[in-house]
Design a protein around this nucleic acid. Structure first.
Lengths: 131, 131
DNA sequence: GCTTGCTCCTGTAGTGACTACAGGTTGTAG
DNA sequence: CTACAACCTGTAGTCACTACAGGAGCAAGC
């Protein structure tokens, strides 16, 4: 399998695959005689893992840690849990803020529809910290 | 108030403040005789707004739009409503996305028995395609 | 055997939103 | 007068890509 096939299988841009290699999250692959990269099924799975983690908002450093953990099945998984918990906390923080922004925006839209002069409180809504 | 005070009041890096000026989300401030930037209370509020919007994941272009919305004269209510509605749609989209992230992350964390990596649900979840 | 066109290669540069630093000026306290 | 903090401009680095230039390999059709 060469890079184009891997790209199609994993749904990841070719340039991104080469970037992941440079970034050290994908192993340096073997080459064909003509210099082209050769990949296998393991690379498709690893790339899927990386994309999934990235989609969940983990940065590449966290991905490296998670991948390293995956390769030590006997190690404790407290590290993995801690990384995931930190990510969850961050997502929940953003959810709370977005919910208050949604309330403010929909209030504005509703007031405009009624023809009432909307007193815009977007700044206040965003300045009212949820902490 | 000069840039260092604004930085402390708003909790935003000095370099970032100058960057926001270049990016056109903070107005070009007046200068003292010695060339130093002068800010007022309005800048503190505006900066707070920008930071919160950025924390919610809006890019600087959206921030510009939100700021423009905030500064809409009361006359152009239909216009303001249209902009607010567009931002509201975007917020709803982000909310839905974050909610599914939270669901997956919290399931991962909840099912992690803090044992060994071999049985770790966090790692396993990442290996399982979300589709 | 030659051309066309696809896929691949390397290397560099651009993106957005910062962040850091170099090298210089101004203001203030001891 | 000296030390040092705070400011100035301008440039370069960061992250996670993404795009592109310029070249090589290969397969199919003429």
């Amino acid at each position: 399998m060469q890079i184009g096939d891997l790209s199609r299988h994993a749904g990841v841009n070719i340039e991104t695959i080469r970037y992941y290699e440079r970034a050290g999250v994908l192993p340096v692959p073997a080459r064909q005689g003509n210099g082209r990269r050769i990949y296998g099924e393991a690379d498709v799975r690893r790339l899927g893992f990386i994309r999934h983690a990235r989609d969940l908002g983990f940065d590449l450093q966290s991905v490296r840690t998670l991948l390293a953990l995956q390769e030590q099945p006997e190690a404790s998984c407290t590290d993995a849990s801690r990384i995931a918990q930190a990510q969850l906390d961050e997502v929940e923080r953003r959810l709370a803020q977005l919910q208050s922004l949604r309330a403010e925006l929909s209030r504005m839209v509703a007031e405009c529809r009624k023809g009432v002069v909307a007193e815009c409180r977007v700044i206040e809504a965003l300045n009212t910290s949820p902490f």
